[in-house]
Design a protein around this nucleic acid. Structure first.
Length: 453
RNA sequence: UCCGGUGUAGCUCAGCGGCAGAGCGGGUGGCUGUUAACCACUAGGUCGUAGGUUCGAUCCCUACCGCCGGAGCCA
């Protein structure tokens, strides 16, 4: 029975017999013994194993190099050296699988670009081990956050026949042979079908039955976006709440961000310290800010006024009624407020049809959460629950009623105010790890021109 | 898709219109309770691809491809 390295290193007392399995990070030879540093992914640190010449298996030491997998059994003892509290005095060593000199990971650092080319091995590096452990913790924390608040986890379809809200270009799903002249009616679903870009509209139908729900699953965008913040396949968290307005929506988004920052600080301390040291010196302080301070909230109108009177030179002009550019959002959260900011009540012309129109006739009850370093991390809104207003909005956006009949039905039968938002899971991970490229917070990134592994 | 940058040893990068360089990694030997160990020796290259300019191009020019940064789209 193997003991995870994390458990071994957390031991309170010496142990007579312990078995650890993992991959060798470094080996340092002496004449009469060798040090192996063994990492098994359970935590950032490895455990030091001391192998005296002559113990069973030590004849394989010449073949045990960086990258090899080994099993060691021995006594857990206080280390005589300085760098670690515990080490294993090995009594039996097994070379499980050698790694020859072509093993690409060195002890020294590699560039992120190189590590992406060896996506099948990069999880064995310190940084990517930490990133993927964090990803798991954060995913679990997302579930506990909503479950503790009575939300129902719902699974919305991944294959869809409705171009929901036109959120982006979609990947076509078909069983028709390539180049087929067959009509969509002859295809598998009897109509054109696609990979989902968002589960929001379906989630709304479930919220209008179960109260508060959330989705947490993959979404797909066939946009030719070549940026560090966009992937063609990404995971999205989409809560949807019945009997909730924009205020409640913003409150929940802020509470969720705060909760996740606290989980990161409390439960990923070792990995967080590593990110702060190696990736982003300001990371821990920024997370503390999010965990402790209330977010600033400004209306779109106020935000534009702040930008106009900032005296700041922007590449793109600030204009009332135009969308905020990335540089504008970054200025608000990084320079002006220096904390997370929620901007709400956007002009209706720049927002999708389903957002609830405000009484001023010009704006909709939309909100974006902006965080330093990332920009927009959450986008949400109160949904239009009034049938006649929704119909007018669809007409204005030139959407066909027959495509959204079921969505409109929610307003026809027992309509309620409701609201929700979408959070990009990878963007969250970028925020809590400091990693600046979305390709490096998902094990196998799908971006234009790249679908390796 | 647009703008800018970049491509040289396994990795990270210098370099230069005229014989291809370092550090790290690899190999060999040595040394040491070591810890991104240390010391010595050693192997390793179609300088992204294709054209062009030139007596001569890794270097200058053009195109293409890859990657990086920024923008748009958004999460």
């Amino acid at each position: 029975m193997r003991t995870p390295v994390l458990t071994a290193l957390s031991s309170q007392a010496p142990q007579d017999s312990i078995t650890v399995c993992g991959w060798v990070r470094t080996k340092r030879d002496s004449k009469t013994f060798s040090f192996l540093e063994i990492n098994d992914g359970s935590c950032l640190r490895g455990i030091q194993a001391v192998v005296d010449a002559g113990v069973p298996g030590s004849e394989d030491l010449p073949k045990i190099t960086t990258g090899a997998s080994v099993q060691v059994t021995g006594r857990l003892v206080a280390s005589q050296g300085q760098g670690q509290a515990w080490e294993i005095q090995v009594t039996a060593l097994t070379l499980t699988g050698p790694a020859d000199e072509s093993y690409p990971l060195q002890k020294k650092g590699h560039s992120m670009e190189f590590l992406r080319q060896i996506g099948h091995l990069r999880a064995r590096s310190n940084l990517f081990g930490a990133v993927f452990r964090t990803r798991s913790r954060m995913a679990f924390a997302v579930h506990t956050f909503f479950q503790e608040r009575g939300f129902v986890y719902v699974h919305t379809p991944i294959i869809t026949a409705s171009d929901c809200e036109g959120a982006g270009e979609m990947f076509r799903v078909t069983t028709l042979p390539q180049g087929s002249a067959a009509k969509p009616e002859e295809d598998f679903f009897g109509k054109p079908s696609f990979l989902t870009v968002s589960g929001q509209l379906e989630a709304e139908t479930l919220a209008c039955a179960l109260g508060s729900v959330y989705t947490f699953g993959p979404a797909f965008r066939a946009e030719n976006s070549n940026t560090s913040r966009h992937a063609a396949e990404f995971w999205m968290i989409e809560p949807e709440m019945a009997f909730c307005d924009l205020q409640g929506d913003m409150d929940m988004a802020e509470e969720q961000m705060r909760y996740l920052a606290r989980v990161m600080l409390a439960q990923c301390a070792e990995d967080l310290a590593f990110f702060t040291k190696m990736v982003d010196k300001g990371l821990t302080d920024r997370l503390k800010l999010v965990a402790e301070q209330p977010f600033k909230r400004v209306s779109y109108r106020e935000a534009v006024d702040i930008l106009l009177s900032s005296g700041q030179e922007f590449e793109f002009p600030v204009v009332h009624g135009h969308n905020l550019q990335s540089e504008h959002e970054r200025y608000l959260t990084e320079k002006h407020f220096q904390c997370p900011v929620i901007v709400f009540n956007y002009p209706k012309e720049i927002k999708p049809f389903y957002m609830r129109q405000n009484d001023d006739g010009e704006t909709v009850a939309a909100m974006d959460v902006l965080v330093p370093g990332i920009g927009e991390i959450i986008g949400g809104s109160q949904r239009e629950e009034r049938p006649e207003r929704l119909r007018a909005a669809m007409e204005h956006h030139q959407l066909r009623e027959e495509d959204y009949w079921w969505y409109a039905d929610l307003r026809k039968y027992g309509t309620v105010p409701h609201a929700g938002y979408g959070m990009g899971f990878e963007r969250l991970l970028m925020f809590v790890t400091g990693v600046s490229n979305i390709r490096d917070v998902i094990p196998f990134a799908r971006t234009p021109g790249t679908a390796d592994f």
